[in-house]
């Protein structure tokens, strides 16, 4: 299979969907130029500046415009340059896009895709490094997608665009230039189906977005000391494939959830809660979380490293998990 970079896979999915559906338009700041990292490069040449539309620096109005346009027959894709700036569009996304189908008693549909990139990399500092997925999981009506591989980025983006609900599509900047195999034909990936990235028996690690490659590396390292971990990539956070996680936890008895967002209030806590509610008896120890410390992300490269959890943190959490036993004795 040909290898594509994550960012190129995104561009290919955008292009193929736009070729198939004339109602798709892209709205965002500098999208005709390709956006900040080139995800939309060349699309304006191919589809024209009517369908790939530069907007003023007005995130709130652009988000609302996209919702309004979706109500009259367009299928808009909004690009918010950095997820951090989605704060400026929260009213339209949370109060309008997410709720219009419900509040109208099913009269309205909002087929909207919101592409954002975020995460820690490059010393961008506190306004360009956040992982805010947990905010949106809290909002009924939104779907939240966080691809970890090039192939998933393409397939999930196709599904997001075709979905009749607002979908928040979270790209990780540090994954943009990572390569991966992508099929000749990109098939849409159904939401709510986790991928088991590596099978294992001793502990389950649920890893989100960039934590997936980190977890796989941690698995390699742990294997050297005879520990076998199963790595699950939920791929979509809303809907969440709890069944796949539960099935794994029932086999391993131990669960670590790794994400790059601040640990407090993150999706790790939500997954831990959902798992213990139905599988408490299957757990051999507490569910552990790996995430960022509770502080804004610092810009200095030395400090920034302290924020992005990586392989070491996952290995450490797995080892701490394995150290628990139900009867109080070391495992």
């Amino acid at each position: 299979m040909p290898e594509l970079r994550y960012i190129d896979a995104i561009r290919r999915a955008l292009q193929e969907e736009m070729e198939n559906d004339e109602s798709i338009v892209i709205l965002g700041e500098d999208v005709t130029l390709g956006g900040p990292f080139g995800a939309t490069t060349g699309l304006a040449d191919k589809f024209g500046v009517t369908r790939v539309r530069n907007t003023p620096i007005s995130e709130g109005a652009v988000m609302g415009m996209a919702v309004g346009a979706s109500l009259v027959g367009l299928r808009p894709i909004v690009e918010i340059m950095f997820v951090d700036f989605i704060t400026l569009a929260m009213d339209q996304l949370v109060n309008h896009a997410a709720k219009l189908h419900y509040m109208s008693g099913g009269q309205l549909r909002v087929p909207l895709t919101v592409r954002v990139q975020g995460g820690i990399s490059g010393g961008y500092g506190a306004h360009h490094s956040q992982s805010l997925e947990a905010w949106f999981l809290h909002v009924p009506g939104l779907k939240v997608v966080a691809p970890a591989t090039a192939s998933d980025a393409a397939g999930l983006l196709k599904s997001a665009i075709r979905d009749d609900n607002p979908v928040l599509f979270l790209e990780h900047r540090a994954l943009y230039w990572t390569g991966g195999e992508v099929g000749e034909v990109i098939e849409p990936i159904i939401f709510g189906r986790a991928a088991i990235r590596r099978a294992g028996t001793d502990a389950t690690v649920v890893a989100v977005s960039r934590m997936v490659p980190a977890a796989l590396e941690a698995a390699e390292r742990l294997e050297e000391s005879g520990t076998s971990i199963e790595v699950i990539d939920p791929r979509t956070l809303a809907p969440l494939d709890l069944d796949t996680i539960l099935e794994s936890v029932r086999r391993t008895g131990r669960l670590v959830v790794a994400h790059e967002a601040v640990t407090v209030g993150g999706i790790g806590g939500e997954i831990a809660a959902q798992v213990q509610e139905v599988a408490f008896a299957d757990l051999t120890g507490p569910v552990l979380r790996v995430g960022a410390p509770f502080a804004p992300v610092a810009s200095s490269p030395v400090l920034e490293k302290l924020f992005a959890p990586g392989v070491d943190a996952i290995v450490d959490a797995v080892q701490r998990s394995l150290a628990f036993s139900r009867d109080g004795a070391p495992a």
Partner: peptide, 30 residues
Amino acid sequence: SSLEHGFPVTSAATGGCIPLATGAAFGFSK
């Protein structure tokens, strides 16, 4: 709201409908 009468949204957020109405116009124009 009544979509069949061309009234898709009443927004209770002050100013909430301004971007939506603008977006519908954007859609009509496209």
